[in-house]
Design a protein around this nucleic acid. Structure first.
Lengths: 193, 193
DNA sequence: TAGTAACCGAACAGATTGTTCAATAACGGC
DNA sequence: GCCGTTATTGAACAATCTGTTCGGTTACTA
């Protein structure tokens, strides 16, 4: 059976397909991309594609998974500088992989990705917040909901940033982010009305 | 040519198609729904469909448009009770059209809708905020970005609400929403760091 | 009631999807 | 470097979907 990830040929195929998809994502929407488009761009045989992935969605999530793994590494490395929210690290990591993120997050993107991304980011945030609140404390807003709020605010700012104001630095974006988000988070964690 | 919106037959056709789509959206994702599915469910001829809409997306946006129009009306009616953010009115309106919103906003939804909804809500919010800040004041966060932040936080909470915690009342949800969002908004409008 | 307008439904070309299979090429352990 | 193993190829396949056309039928409305 095909799909051995260690074989050099397999790696090559997977790399070509991933690159082709990323390229195409910068040209048009995901649902406007056919498997045939990917095959043509990657110059890969039809049967080979289906030996590796079950669908174009499968390929997409494989790429997304790689990216999120790298993101997670980045966060954990920087965890020494434990701010209340690790947002600056996120913004920096994204700036470093701009092209892919632009393709994934902005106009060419699609709902499942944004959703998946938001969930992953929410988990990171929740993990961070949980360490700052006693386990048995009752909050006015459940922690998962609060984390989801932070993640969604994060992504919305990301879209604005990547789509339009590419001149802002990660630090500038982070400052804006924190000014909008942090007061609310503090308010909830403090238990104030 | 077909498509006269006043003719009773046209109205019937459009209603049947819209209902069929909403029904199907509660069963599966939009991109998993074919025109054929809609025709079967609505019991409408293929050519008739294309006489009214250019595609299933067209039908979808027509439905979404109706909904947002009704939402806009609802907001404007309630504008007497000018809170800082008209969020409670939004939550109430949504509770009143739960089924459709659940179909549109939650797991069965798709990116273009969420995006469109967010933009529309952001516009409502921006309109509201603009009246509270002098025209020439420079804010640490541009008003459109701030409005986008509010809208995205709103939608994220909406998803949590409609998908899981359906027992919360609009008032409860609104309280949580404001606790998370309002401090940040005030901070930006006040010009504080 | 009569003319107009919408609906039907079958049929069409073109594109897409996911699978199969035998032939070919490349890999990597020995 | 040899050779068995494994991946890739490319063509062909049925099945589905899309958007359009057109002659005939039905139902509205003036």
């Amino acid at each position: 059976m095909d799909g051995d990830k260690t074989d050099r040929r397999s790696q090559r195929t997977r790399r070509l397909l991933t690159n082709a998809l990323v390229e195409l994502l910068q040209e048009k929407r995901f649902d406007g991309i056919s498997v045939q488009d990917i095959l043509d761009r990657a110059d890969i045989g039809r049967s080979t594609f289906y030996a590796h992935f079950t669908s174009k969605e499968d390929l997409l999530y494989s790429s997304l998974g790689q990216m999120l793994h790298s993101l997670q590494m980045h966060i954990e490395q920087a965890e020494a500088t434990t701010a209340m929210l690790p947002s600056l690290e996120l913004f920096r990591h994204i700036k470093g992989h701009q092209r892919l993120y632009i393709a994934l997050v902005t106009a060419n993107s699609l709902e499942p990705i944004a959703r998946n991304l938001q969930q992953q980011i929410a988990q990171i945030v929740e993990h961070n917040l949980r360490s700052q609140v006693p386990a048995n404390r009752q909050l006015a807003v459940p922690l998962p909901v609060l984390a989801d709020f932070v993640a969604s605010a994060f992504l919305s700012l990301l879209v604005v940033w990547l789509e339009g104001n590419n001149t802002w630095s990660p630090e500038q974006v982070d400052t804006m982010f924190l000014q909008m988000v942090q007061p609310g988070v503090k308010s909830v964690l403090a238990g104030g009305g």
